[in-house]
Design a protein around this nucleic acid. Structure first.
Length: 291
DNA sequence: TATCCGACCTGTTGGC
DNA sequence: TGCCAACAGGTCGGAT
């Protein structure tokens, strides 16, 4: 499941293997893969032809590649924006390699490197689209996405203040991409377990040291996953394994229902939560008092 | 305005 | 064996 560390591995792959290359041709094989490009697949392909890829950027789980126009203009330019959703992969493959079963978009380049960029996505929650940039160089449709905790400009104090003002619970807040980006269900559960916080803890009750500790654990778990995701990278494979990350072996909470807590040995529990699951230790992560 | 929650999508798994 | 329901979960937009 691509979360921030996996997306960062993909970004590094794009930076290395497609930056500076010019698009020759684009095939859109599934309309849902370009649904966020409101003008449709034909327009998407036509607009991309002839543009040169810049250096891939990332915020949270969004990736984008700034596009160099043939005729430079005064505005902030445009970008190819991508989101991997739950099962998306961006692959750099030798042209002629048999198509993947769930190949959705193919981008050919006008050089002699012999490779093409493929967007493969089983569940089609992800997609690619073209957007104008804000003056900050961000695709306009993701201007509302908060910085992620690995961004040097992430403001810990402002995050704590925002949490205190919210009338919600801590896991909901962690998954709210306008507060903090890049955290998904897996790393939220991991960071909460490390922080000994129950997922339904009201954000208004978090202390400043408590928020600092939580942020520290989020960063630790992401960096550890990034270190392991990075090891799988090779020249033609620009993604991680979407089905079972290498970080699986290191998980303390996610997916460990009925298994002993790595801290106290109490069987871990799973609770349905927001159409998904929350995993926690009933002893280390006490539910908040109600009433 | 802030918050909540269902829909979207498809392959896998488990129960009957 | 075959069928069906449940499950996985990031994001959006409608509902409250």
């Amino acid at each position: 499941m691509p979360e921030l560390p996996e997306v960062e591995v993909v970004r590094r792959g794009l930076e290395r293997w497609v930056a500076g290359r010019t698009v020759d041709d684009v095939e859109v094989l599934h309309p849902r893969a370009v649904r966020r490009h409101l003008a449709g697949g034909v327009d998407f392909a036509a607009r991309l032809r002839g543009l040169r890829f810049g250096t891939a950027m990332r915020r949270g789980k969004y990736l984008w590649v700034p596009l160099d126009e043939a005729v430079p203009s005064d505005d902030a330019g445009s970008s190819l924006l991508g989101h991997l959703g739950m099962s998306g992969q961006l692959l750099v493959r030798p042209a002629g390699t048999p198509d993947e079963k769930h190949l959705r978009i193919r981008v050919r380049f006008d050089d002699a490197l012999g490779t093409e960029l493929r967007f493969v996505d089983q569940r089609t929650f992800g997609g690619l689209s073209l957007h104008d940039n804000t003056p900050d160089g961000l695709p306009d449709v993701i201007a509302h996405i908060a910085r992620d905790p690995l961004d040097p400009a992430f403001d810990d104090v402002a995050f704590h203040t925002a949490l205190r003002l919210r009338r919600t619970t801590v896991k909901r807040a962690l998954l709210d991409q306008s507060l903090i980006s890049g955290v998904g269900n897996i790393y939220a559960d991991e960071a909460l377990w490390r922080s000994r916080l129950h997922y339904e803890r009201p954000t208004a009750t978090l202390t400043r040291p408590g928020t600092a500790e939580l942020l520290g654990h989020i960063r630790d778990v992401m960096r550890e996953a990034l270190d392991q995701g990075g090891t799988s990278f090779d020249s033609l494979y620009v993604n991680v394994n979407g089905e079972s990350g290498y970080f699986d072996r290191s998980l303390d909470a996610y997916g460990r229902e009925d298994e002993p807590c790595h801290r106290c040995g109490t069987p871990m529990r799973r609770r349905p939560w927001m159409n998904r699951s929350s995993y926690f230790c009933p002893r280390c992560q006490r539910p908040p008092r109600t009433g």
